[in-house]
Amino acid sequence: METLLQQIVNGLVVGSVYALVALGYTMVYGILGLINFAHGDVLMVGALVALQVIVFVQKTWPALGTIPTLLIGLSAAMIVCMALGYIIERTAYRRLRNAPRLAPLITAIGVSFLLQTLAMIIWGRNYHSFPQLISTAPLQPVDGVFITPVQIIILISSALLMVALILLVNKTRLGRAMRATAENHRVASLMGVDTNKIIAITFIIGSGLAAIAGVMFSSNYGVAHYAMGFTPGIKAFTAAVLGGIGNLGGAMVGGIVLGLVESIGAGYLGSATDLCHLPLWAQSASLQATCANGGSFELLSSNYQDIFAFVILGIVLIFRPTGLLGERVSDRA
């Protein structure tokens, strides 16, 4: 029971980070119909910029408290990533807006690898340890279940951010313009919406969220690395598809569900595929010998955790391309 609870806690934390990144994918896809492959790498840039700034601030003004230091790092990361998002949209994607579908996708892959390479040039290939500004000493609200203050902050702040984004999209003038652009570019521009500006703003908001997610991700795991964006990127995309791409609520639900499935799955994958649980008559002699004295014969260990995202992605796309909450019927699939 404790294991299950613990995995649920971990799943919620990871899932809310996925959800934040998934929002970026889903907003861009909703408006442009483009998989912004570079989104995961914007997350990576955010984490590394924050790391750099935090280290610098710690050195220059050591007297500054941890919270201001973290906030300075976070805002620096957000500013850099927002600028980056704008530059990517402006230089790489805007010209390809009416091109056939393969062209922008290939460009997006190129941008992703370009960002990774540039990060590798600037920060090297090493893993950098991310300064632990918020305590990572685990608390124990229930016996046997641990949660760190960092994780609590991640959960709360991502929930707040999501609520803020929903309010922005549904209640403000800007949000209405975004929805209109997603519905139909041309008609929106006829109604006086500056669609170019709206698309740029969408990229900027998405990149800002990715920067925050990057800082959260690095704070949780304590490391930052030039290639760290790929895995959360692909998982967040899975989350977006799972929830129904183009749908903000779907991205959040998809992120949380994916985080939970992955974390619970990883926790039980080993023992679920342990051949020693087979009835005795089904075991071969050599298997019985392995299993004797509490041995195990796990076909799949938790090393296979990363496969969940890909398998879920494949299954959702094949059987329910509109995702869990997607009402948008997508002919793109």
């Binding site: 998989i35 393969l102 996708l105 692909i234 995309f237 995202a309 992605l313 494949g314 391309p321 793109r332």
Partner: peptide, 12 residues
């Protein structure tokens, strides 16, 4: 699947 969805699944 077609286009970008196909690309992502093959990547997976």
């Amino acid at each position: 699947l077609r286009g970008d969805y196909l690309a992502i699944v093959t990547l997976g």
